[in-house]
């Protein structure tokens, strides 16, 4: 156990010592500033949130709280930027070491390939969690500058969600949703890590992973394939949005967690098998 802890700590040093690891954090921060400013000064963006709730009898002053805007800015980031950056890091975890030659140095040591992959998976999962928590933390921080504290008003018409929460419950839902967003990030990272176990460049692993996610999103939303939507991984990525429903559908969340666990396990087993049989050469 002590060895595992030391090896995991080393893996985190490697991961967080690299400048490119922080590209995602930087991009998120800039995007969040832009979105916060748009919500603050652009009527179109404000109206997107305010109008539906005004029809329900709420005023703009009530609705435009820091928590509401933080959640609203997370929607596009979680769907577009977050998969991109966890794919980049997941694709790097193994393939970059193979490309640089450091993997050969590691594998001249008495460590099994499955153990090495397990350590990298845990490090990738920690990165994914830190990224999502950083994303959520920054969103709250930035919106606190431009907006006043208050309740949580969530408008996601494409999911049929229009909910209102008092500040206390709003925070609970926000934290719960972030937890499931972390599960999404870990699943995408696992997919990219699996691909990076094959003999391919880090960028290729990241591109293939993000392509798989986008392809799943497209297929899942095709009306002709509505009957098959439960076969696509991205269908289960919507779980975090369920946390913003007035009544949380726990059975759906439980089902999604089981499915994502299954996907992660499958990715790990395929990755471990590919990595195990691979020849590591200079």
């Amino acid at each position: 156990m002590k060895m595992f802890y030391l090896q995991l700590r080393n893996e985190l040093w490697k991961l967080f010592g690299k400048k490119r690891t922080y590209i995602g954090f930087g991009a998120f921060f800039v995007t969040e500033i832009v979105i916060a400013l748009l919500f603050r000064y652009n009527h179109g963006a404000r109206n997107f949130v305010v109008r539906p709730l005004e029809r329900m009898g709420y005023t703009a002053e009530e609705v435009l709280s820091s928590l509401t805007i933080a959640v609203s800015m997370l929607f596009p980031i979680a769907n577009l930027l977050m998969p991109l950056y966890v794919s980049l890091v997941g694709g790097d975890l193994m393939a970059k070491e193979a490309e640089d030659g450091t993997l050969r140095m590691i594998l001249s040591r008495p460590i099994s390939r499955v153990r090495l992959l397990a350590i990298k998976w845990v490090a990738g999962a920690i990165f994914s969690a830190v990224l999502v928590l950083g994303l959520a933390g920054c969103a709250i921080l930035l919106t606190s500058i431009f907006f006043t504290p208050g309740g949580l008003y969530v408008v996601a018409p494409w999911e049929g969600i229009m909910s209102v929460f008092e500040p206390g419950r709003g925070w609970q839902r926000f934290l719960l949703a972030d937890f499931f967003l972390i599960c999404n990030a870990i699943s995408i990272m696992s997919l990219a890590l699996m691909l990076s176990c094959f003999n391919m460049k880090p960028a290729a692993a990241a591109i293939v992973a993000i392509s798989v996610v986008v392809l799943n999103l497209i297929l899942q939303d095709m009306p002709a394939l509505a009957d098959l939507k439960e076969w696509f991984i991205t269908y289960y990525f919507r779980t975090w949005l369920n946390c913003y429903r007035e009544i949380i559908p726990w059975w759906k969340i439980g089902q999604a967690c089981c499915m994502l666990f299954g996907f992660n396990l499958t990715f790990f087993i395929i990755g471990a098998t590919a990595f195990q049989v691979r020849d590591i050469k200079s």
Binding site: G17, D100, T102, M105
Partner: peptide
């Protein structure tokens, strides 16, 4: 109980 060195040794240059 084995140590190895490879041609053009590579490390984590940023550490």
């Amino acid at each position: 109980k084995v140590g190895a060195i490879f041609e053009a040794p590579v490390f984590y240059d940023y550490l």
